[in-house]
Design a protein around this nucleic acid. Structure first.
Length: 228
DNA sequence: GCGACAG
DNA sequence: ATCTTGTCGC
């Protein structure tokens, strides 16, 4: 899953093997709904990094929340050395491995996971949310705080949306989740339609910019980092 | 050739 | 991603 070549730390802009792997996996993505009509357990995934860390530690967190009450049902974290650098377009090769360790220990299986990063709103249509969905075999949704590719500015009211467009095609939805806050970019990960994805994200927002599940994962990842 | 570039 | 206090606004 991760191209094991140390020199990638030195040539972080073009990674042929990783690009080929993305293309191969992207062909297996399912863009239609394949999840329960009512979500009972919502997952959240995020990874925290340490600034100026020679050890290159990454702290991954996966959480499962009760979709209606936002109560945390389960949490799993994994701290380890990153074996891949951060390279725009190849984030999954850095974050998925530690998240997979979390997944194997998470006591509660969420029906869909909100991932902090893009899904198909990606240069090759295969962002970290897609990668995670395929590897876990679970529906996933990409929720990014900034753009990697494409453009789209939604209206000012919570719930306002506008198609996220790139090269003449729709790759996601720019969604205003809160007044006065920058929009979030929702895109399909795996086994979910864009329409359902936006509805789930909006329904999990609770007046904040980011869904509770992602905030919980972010918090858990930070706890793991500060504890180490 | 010059920028842009999830976390 | 992370470094960080106060401060503006509902």
């Amino acid at each position: 899953m991760v191209p094991d070549v140390p020199h990638y730390w030195l040539h972080p802009r073009d990674i042929p093997e990783a690009r080929a792997a993305q293309a191969e996996m992207a062909a297996r993505l399912v863009a239609e709904d394949d999840l329960p009509p009512r979500i009972a357990r919502l997952g959240g995934a995020d990874v925290s990094n340490t600034r100026f860390d020679p050890a290159k530690m990454v702290h991954a967190a996966l959480v499962a929340l009760d979709a209606s009450a936002d109560a945390v049902l389960a949490t799993a974290t994994e701290s380890r050395r990153a074996d891949f650098p951060y390279v725009p377009g190849y984030l999954a090769f850095r974050e998925v491995p530690p998240l997979l360790a979390c997944w194997s220990r998470l006591a509660v299986r969420p029906e869909v996971i909100l991932v902090d990063g893009h899904g198909v709103a990606h240069p090759r249509g295969f962002g970290v949310a897609c990668h995670l969905g395929l590897v876990f075999g679970v529906p996933t949704i990409g929720v990014a705080k900034s753009l990697l590719v494409g453009e789209g500015e939604p209206g000012p009211e919570p719930g306002d949306t506008v198609p996220l467009m790139w090269k003449g095609a729709r790759i996601g939805t720019a969604l205003r989740t809160r007044r006065g806050a920058r929009p979030v970019y929702v895109s399909t990960g795996h086994r979910v339609s864009l329409e359902t994805a936006v509805a789930i994200v909006l329904g999990a927002t609770r007046g904040r910019r980011l869904p509770t599940a992602i905030r919980a994962a972010h918090d858990a990842a930070n706890v793991a980092r500060l504890r180490t």
